[in-house]
C-alpha cells in the first residue's frame, strides 16, 4: 500500500497538531511575523515566497483541484438534501429544511434494518474469508522456487481482477444455471439440480465465492511486494538459530508483512459497508432479496427507481458516515495497539 507510510514513522508523541497537519489551505493567512517558535526546524516560509518559487507546481494542481471540488466534494455538500425536501427540477440542494425527518423515517423503517443486517453479514463474510486468503496465497507463492512457474500462477490469478463485473456475473449465471457445470457435477453424484441464483440461502455463498475468485490473486500483489523487502539476513539468522520453514514463516515472514496486512485491513474495514453494490445489483432478483438486498441496492431502488431522493440521500449519508467512523476507529486502534496506522 503506498499511502503515507513515510510520514507516519517518527511522529512526535506530544499529540496536538504538528506543523504538517496544520490546515494550510491556499487561503491561509500568512503568519510571517507571528511568534516564531524556535523548536520548529522547518524554516518558515511565507505563502508569497512559496508561490513565487513554485507557482508552476501550484498551477499544475489547479485542474485536479477543480475536478475534486466539483465531482467529489460537490456531492458531499449535495448530501444536504438529506435534510431538505428535494423537488426534481428544483435546486440541487433542495427547497426547504425538514430537519431530521428523513433520518427518522429510515430509523423507523423495518426494511432498512433488514438490509442493514444483510449488509453487515455480507460485508463481514467477505472480510473474514476474503482478507486472509491473499496472505495465504502470497506465502505459498513465496515458497515457489521455480521463477517461471511463479510468474505463470501470478499472471493467471491476477486476470479475474481485470474483468468487468458484468462479465463475472454473466459467467456465474452460466456456471450456476440448471444446465451449468456446477449442477452437472451435482447431478453426477446423483443430486437434484439447484437453481442457485433463485435461492436466497445460496446468495451469500455465491457472492463471497465469486468475490474471492476475483480478488484473491490481485490481493497478493502488495504482499509479494512487501515480501521482497524482507532482509535475507533475518532468514539466515533464523536458520542459524535452528528455525525450520514453519518457524521462519512465523517469526520472520509474517512480521515482515505485518504493516501491509494492517494497512489493508484498515482499508477493508472502511469499505466494509460498501459491499460490491454493482455485483449485488446484477446478481440479485426479487426471489433473493431476503438475503441479497443491501443498503446500497435498497437506497438505489428507493432513490433512483422510486424517486425518493431525499430519503435515499439520508440513508447514503448514514452509510458513508459509518464507513468513515469505522476507518478512523480502526486506524486509531491499530496505532494504539500495534503502532502501525495509515496516518
Amino acid at each position: 500500500m503506498p499511502l503515507t507510510q513515510d510520514e507516519q514513522s517518527p511522529r512526535p508523541a506530544t499529540g496536538g497538531p504538528t506543523e504538517d497537519t496544520a490546515p494550510d489551505g491556499p487561503t491561509a493567512p500568512v503568519p510571517a511575523a507571528a511568534a516564531p517558535t524556535a523548536r520548529r526546524r522547518k524554516q518558515r516560509q511565507t505563502w508569497r515566497q512559496a508561490f513565487r518559487r513554485d507557482w508552476q507546481l501550484y498551477s499544475l494542481a489547479l485542474l485536479p483541484l477543480i475536478f475534486l471540488a466539483i465531482f467529489k466534494y460537490g456531492p458531499m455538500v449535495g448530501n444536504v438534501i438529506a435534510f431538505r425536501r428535494f423537488r426534481p427540477g428544483g435546486s440541487i440542494f433542495g427547497d426547504e429544511w425538514v430537519g431530521l425527518r428523513y433520518i427518522d423515517m429510515f430509523i423507523n423503517d423495518p426494511s432498512f434494518w433488514h438490509v442493514f443486517t444483510n449488509t453487515v453479514v455480507l460485508g463481514g463474510l467477505t472480510l473474514v474469508v476474503g482478507f486472509p486468503l491473499p496472505i495465504v496465497l502470497a506465502l505459498l507463492l513465496n515458497e515457489v522456487r521455480k521463477k517461471y512457474f511463479k510468474k505463470i500462477v501470478q499472471s493467471i490469478s491476477y486476470l479475474p481482477h481485470f474483468l468487468s463485473v458484468v462479465i463475472v456475473v454473466g459467467m456465474l449465471m452460466q456456471l450456476l444455471s440448471l444446465e451449468g457445470t456446477v449442477n452437472q457435477i451435482i447431478g453426477a453424484f446423483g443430486g437434484e439440480g439447484i437453481p442457485f441464483l433463485q435461492r436466497p440461502e445460496w446468495f451469500r455463498a455465491v457472492y463471497v465465492g465469486s468475490e474471492v475468485w476475483q480478488t484473491v490473486g490481485w490481493g497478493t500483489i502488495l504482499y509479494l511486494a512487501a515480501l521482497t523487502t524482507i532482509d535475507d539476513s533475518l532468514y539466515e539468522a533464523a536458520r542459524i538459530d535452528g528455525a525450520g520453514r514453519w518457524r521462519q514463516t512465523w517469526h520472520v515472514t509474517l512480521p515482515g508483512i505485518r504493516p501491509t496486512m494492517i494497512t489493508l485491513l484498515i482499508l477493508n474495514i472502511g469499505m466494509f459497508l460498501n459491499v460490491g453494490f454493482e455485483k449485488v445489483l446484477l446478481l440479485y432478483n426479487p426471489l433473493t432479496y431476503e438475503t441479497a438486498d443491501v443498503i446500497s441496492t435498497y437506497l438505489y431502488r428507493v432513490g433512483l427507481v422510486s424517486n425518493n431522493l431525499s430519503y435515499a440521500a439520508a440513508i447514503g449519508l448514514f452509510q458513508a458516515l459509518i464507513g468513515l467512523a469505522m476507518v478512523l476507529s480502526a486506524n486509531l486502534l491499530s496505532r494504539r495497539m500495534v503502532g502501525t496506522s495509515l496516518w
Binding site: T21, P23, P75, M76, N79, I92, F277, G303, L309, A312
Partner: peptide, 24 residues
Amino acid sequence: RNALIGIAVFTMFFNGGIVPNYVL
C-alpha cells in the same frame, strides 16, 4: 502539500454517495 494530499485522500474514505452524484 499535506493539505493537498489530505483533500484527495479524504475522498477515499468519504464520498457523496450515489444520490447526490446523480443529482449533480
